[in-house]
Structures are given as structure tokens and as C-alpha cells.
Amino acid sequence: MGVAGRMAGGRRRVAVGVVATVVLGLAAACAGNPPAAQKALSTLEATVASLSPGGSPSPSSTEDGQVPDGVTLSPFDTKAAAVRNLDPALLAALRKAAGDAKAQGIEMSVTSGWRSKAYQQRLLDKAVAKYGSLEQARRFVNTPEKSAHVSGKAVDVGATAADYWMIQHGAKYGLCQVYANEIWHFELLTTPGGTCPAPLADAAG
């Protein structure tokens, strides 16, 4: 069976499980057992809440740091692990920058923040498949051992207008562009108001 078939089968099993839960809950209610019915309903609500229309986890349930496609995270969204697990000093600086940017008409979002080691490894594996070698992949995605995302000390900012605003003003908050080929990747590399170091060529550097 192909990957698509396995995914479809998994979705069918989830659907069957949800239906079974509802049926059991209704049966319990009819039998005069409201607590069991309420528990079944809660299970259904939790299952539905954890899935987006495309079957991807919602940001509140994505505990490995993934940000689902089409989801925009605010630097103030503490429900998302990608934001919540950032280094406190980095998060505080980011929020100050976001507030000042907004006052100037620039909306800032977090496109990626903290990542688990497992998630970072999946990203690296995909990059190796895309670019053909670990050496080339590491220009864009670091290893879990070296990634500042895994330690919570790096954040990727969007949209493009916010990226360029941060490149221009980020040093005021201690935030610096780290890689020349990633205008969105920022880390705390200087004291607020200090001078940022020159960006490295890429993540492999």
C-alpha cells in the first residue's frame, strides 16, 4: 500500500473511532448515565479541535513546534509551542519589536520558532531529499544538535515587510539577522542598541 493509501486508511480509522465514541456516548445517555455521555462528547470535541480541515494539527496541539500551512502565529500566541517555548529573553525582545513595528503599520508573525529535535530532524531529512546531500541541505537546515531553533534561541519572522523592518531595526532590541540567505531568521546576538555581527553566508557556515 502506498503512502496515500496508508494516510487514507489512518483517517478512516480515526473517523470510525470517533463515530464509535459518539454511539457509545449516546447509548450511555439513553441508559441514564450522563457522565459517560459527557465524557464521550468531550473526547469528540478534543479530537475535532486537534485537526485542521486538511488533517494537520492545529497550532494549540502542535507540541513539536510545527506551524501548519496557512496558520499565522502572533509573537503573543502562548498556545503555540513554537512561540511558548522560545527563550524568554528572545521572546521578550521579539514582542517589543513586534509592538513597535505594528505602530509603524508592519504586522509581524512567527513563521517558525522553537522546534523539537525530532521535528528538526524531519526538516533536515526533507532538505537532504530536496538538495541531494547533507552538505547542501545544511545550507538551509541545521542538524538538531546545532540548530538554535531546538534550543529556542532562534525565530523566523514573517511577512517579508517585517523581515526587512527587523533587518533595519532589530539591533535596537538585540535581534540580528544570522544568515545572509535567510532574511527571516533572527537571534539575540547583541545587546539592545548594539551592533549586529555580519551575517554568515548560510547555516552551514
Rank of each mutant, 00 (worst) to 15 (best):
A81Q: 09
R115H: 11
I167C: 06
V178A: 12
Y179S: 09
L90Y: 06
L189D: 13
S112K: 11
A20H: 06
D156R: 03
T43Q: 11
P192W: 01
A101P: 03
G170N: 07
Y131T: 07
A4S: 04
S42Q: 11
V71L: 06
P35Y: 11
V18Q: 03
C176A: 11
V83W: 00
L51E: 01
K153H: 10
G152M: 06
A159Q: 09
G193Q: 02
A37K: 03
E187H: 09
E45C: 07
K126L: 03
L91V: 10
G170Q: 06
I183E: 12
G5S: 14
R122E: 13
T72R: 13
A180I: 05
R122D: 04
A198F: 06
P88M: 06
K79T: 15
Q38L: 15
A15F: 12
A129F: 04
A159T: 02
H149P: 10
A8S: 08
L86G: 04
P34D: 00
A180P: 09
P59C: 12
T190D: 01
N33E: 09
G70E: 03
K146M: 09
A31W: 05
L200F: 01
P144V: 07
V14N: 05
Q168N: 15
S61G: 07
W184S: 15
E45W: 12
V83C: 12
A8F: 14
A180C: 13
E145H: 01
S74R: 01
N33C: 12
D202S: 14
Q38Y: 04
T190L: 03
L24Y: 11
G99K: 10
Q38E: 07
L51M: 15
P68D: 02
A101H: 01
T191D: 02
A101W: 00
A162P: 04
A4H: 08
Y119H: 10
Q38G: 06
G17L: 00
E135Q: 15
P57E: 10
P35W: 05
T160I: 00
Y164A: 15
W114L: 09
A118W: 02
A148C: 05
V157G: 03
E135C: 03
T190A: 13
M1Y: 14
R12E: 14
E107H: 08
R13A: 15
G32N: 00
V128H: 02
Q120W: 09
K39R: 15
R95L: 01
P144L: 05
R122V: 08
R139T: 12
P88E: 01
L90M: 08
T21F: 13
D202C: 10
P59F: 09
V16R: 08
